[in-house]
Design a protein around this nucleic acid. Sequence first.
DNA 1: ACGCGCTTGTGAAAGCACGCACAAAGTGGG
DNA 2: CCCACTTTGTGCGTGCTTTCACAAGCGCGT
Lengths: 231, 231
Amino acid sequence: MTSRPPRPRERGIPEATVARLPVYLRTLQALQDRGTLTVSSEDLASAAGVNSAKLRKDLSHLGSYGTRGVGYEVRYLVYQISRELGLTQDWAVAIVGIGNLGRALANYGGFGTRGFRIAALLDADPAMVGRRVASLDVGHIDTLEAVVRDKGVSIGVITTPAASAQAVATRFVGAGVSSILNFAPVVLNVPDGVDVRKVDLSIELQILAFHAQRRNGDEGHGAEPAGLELT
Amino acid sequence: MTSRPPRPRERGIPEATVARLPVYLRTLQALQDRGTLTVSSEDLASAAGVNSAKLRKDLSHLGSYGTRGVGYEVRYLVYQISRELGLTQDWAVAIVGIGNLGRALANYGGFGTRGFRIAALLDADPAMVGRRVASLDVGHIDTLEAVVRDKGVSIGVITTPAASAQAVATRFVGAGVSSILNFAPVVLNVPDGVDVRKVDLSIELQILAFHAQRRNGDEGHGAEPAGLELT
DNA sequence: ACGCGCTTGTGAAAGCACGCACAAAGTGGG
DNA sequence: CCCACTTTGTGCGTGCTTTCACAAGCGCGT
């Protein structure tokens, strides 16, 4: 166990790198499906939409898996990135809030692509509980703790209205879930050690609007309607 | 024009700040709904989940809208951030790909919260075209250019399968749309000047998995099954 | 009118992230 | 066997982000 001189992967991969690894992985899998055996950093970077130096530096954090003069072996790299991301094991996911978005996620095939398995769907609405969505019976939110325990849920997805999100997050944490993906438009308050990532459609649109406005010269509407100070 | 000593807002708000402004805005609106009139950077920062110094620096990029010793006037700040983000004008959004996710977005009320209006839904499937979703008739993808022109669409949302996303993006760009929100799991190739933001559920899960694995000591499953080298 | 307490706005320092450019290392042809 | 060519891995400079710490400013009570 301590006999490997090159020290494969350091503890401490930059966050920015971690965020790009899934993109590389997906790109590599597309290449693999097309039968490509090896790929240069230049080609992979261009397919993944990043700078080639950045890609090489990112990969160097996992160890030296390339061959100078040749490139990277696609198959091997897919394996290494998968392992680094923890996709070689199975992750049980529970979705709370089976509204439009929750149902869309439950039915979204791409979820299970690698290692993720939807283990439970929960909702607070009695009218929804018991219905069958994506081959699963919707359970009641009150069973959250039991479901987390029995199904070994380690990732919680919140697709409830904003008002209920914090309560659900707190219950998830209490039940031992320390990875949460939040689609509700609220800032979740969780203890240290719990990892929350948010996906917020409205925020993305607002960022787009900001840049669009800037591109359009910003003017439009004659720079604030002088007098509308709102004091 | 050169007579203002304090120079209100510089052209060039850091990207990191822009990404946080929507969060501040939402937090402020919640405070406003609760009847709060003024708020200190400390309180607002804590509600928004950021460091108070960061919040003050962010707001300082829009100008000096606070009062020392008191804090920020909620109502005024809401207005200033809205204006900066371009939410005082109306943005027409077109959604292409009316599958589970597209329908969920179309029905998602929070969309129209501020300035965003869903102007059109398009799909390639003849069986979907003509159906009524969220009070709109689904149009055929072939009418994209006409719809963009006639409805004044300036933001395109792509919720198609990965295979079709690039083609849709290209058509959006050709039709003059230069803000795209992409939910399909592919890297879009667009010319300079076009702003693409991506929302990728699968990537978020993978990032969560990475951190979860790291928390769990990484071990689990006895460090790679020795012999599964894949060379 | 004055001073005290509170809060903003911002220099300055530390930490990250990015991308260039190049040495090191491998391949293949002659 | 050697040389020319390709491609990786990385040292280094640059710019952006975050955080600290504090002076300047404002309101209130006396």
